[in-house]
């Protein structure tokens, strides 16, 4: 009988969710739709430890087609053009063979799913880029992921500001509009890629796809993370096959890279670059020693645990 008050206490923790959780879900649903429905152009800044950059964005929704162009304004002119969520061209160094991965349909923000692993709440209002905004906090329910603070435009629900916070509330990265215009639709000229933008199709053909010889699985994954992509490519320098797997929980992502190593002096490492952490560990397999590297926007403890839980299994003979 003593267990009953205990149990109700435990359960009340779940039911005592603030009433504005629903409101937060509505805002995130609106956010998911906004980018499919709203044309805009603007300028934003991105800041993380050791880097501060400014970018222009043009986003046009016309005849059911979403066309978007992003251009970095300082330093090198990084550029991306996307059509309906598919990247058309990029500038700068694209990792060889990157686009080889089958175009998995990019999933829209799903507040219902997010709610399982994050606590969603409207925590106030603010003003960003001269526009009124509502603040939605996305707080992880466990210690395996980071939290977000989103400032959404009151009028269109577009994200005006996004902060990534660790468990101590420290700021890991900032994304923030300084100017946003939702009334003028970008014209063709503004959405036209520059000559430096390399079409994805061309970049891909340079690196043929390779088959990996082992299948990998994780003995432990943080709850809610699902495999969304696997790929194998031959490294241009070492000629070794690098397998990669990408996982996401609807908001956060991490990649696991696996590469054979021959050099015994290679050391394990852990490092953090703004929001992104990288942890590498040695792993003994039937094929010899491998290096497992976990890279992602997750706490270092999570990455470490994932790196420890990778297991390899020799694939049965390759299919004809």
């Amino acid at each position: 009988m003593r267990a009953i008050p205990l149990l109700t206490l435990l359960l009340s923790g779940w039911f005592a969710l603030p009433a504005h959780a629903d409101e937060a879900q509505d805002w995130l649903t609106r956010l998911g739709r906004a980018e499919q429905q709203q044309s805009f152009q603007g300028t934003f800044v991105y800041e993380r430890n050791g880097s501060f950059s400014t970018h222009d964005i043009w986003h046009r929704v016309q005849d059911g087609q979403v066309r978007e162009r992003l251009l970095q304004l300082d330093g090198s002119a990084q550029e991306v053009v996307r059509l309906d969520g598919r990247t058309q061209c990029v500038s700068g160094t694209l990792v060889a063979g990157l686009g080889n991965s089958r175009d998995a349909p990019s999933r829209a923000l799903d507040p219902q799913k997010l709610n399982q692993f994050y606590e969603l709440a409207v925590i106030g209002k603010s003003r960003v880029a001269g526009r009124n905004a509502v603040i939605v906090s996305i707080t992880p329910r466990d210690q395996y992921r980071y939290g977000f603070e989103l400032h959404l435009d009151r009028e269109t629900a577009l994200p005006l500001k996004s902060l990534l916070l660790n468990d101590q509330g420290q700021l890991l990265e900032r994304f923030q509009f300084t100017r946003l215009n939702t009334s003028v639709v970008p014209d063709d000229r503004e959405l036209q890629p520059s000559n430096d933008c390399t079409p994805i199709a061309v970049a891909n053909s340079k690196a043929p796809e390779v088959q990996s010889t082992e299948t990998w699985h994780m003995e432990w994954l943080p709850p809610g993370f699902q495999l969304t992509n696997t790929s194998a490519r031959k490294d241009t320098q070492t000629k070794a096959t690098v397998d990669s797997l990408m996982y996401e929980d609807g908001l956060a992502r991490f990649s696991v890279f696996l590469e054979p190593i021959s050099d015994a002096s290679v050391t394990e490492t852990r490092t953090q670059l703004g929001p992104t952490v990288a942890v590498s560990r040695r792993l003994n397999t039937v094929d010899g020693e491998m290096m497992v590297t976990v890279v992602g926007e997750i706490p270092i403890g999570t990455a470490e645990r994932i790196a420890l839980s990778v297991r390899g299994e020799k694939k049965p003979a390759a299919q004809p």
């Binding site: 950059s53 694209l94 990649s255 703004g274």
Partner: peptide, 27 residues
């Protein structure tokens, strides 16, 4: 690896310009 992760996220991500900005900041 950092670059591949960032670019792969950017290629997939339609939710916002954030993954793109992360990838750009690496360059």
């Amino acid at each position: 690896y950092l670059r591949q992760h960032a670019q792969e996220s950017a290629l997939k991500g339609t939710e916002s310009a954030l993954p793109y900005a992360r990838a750009a900041s690496l360059e």
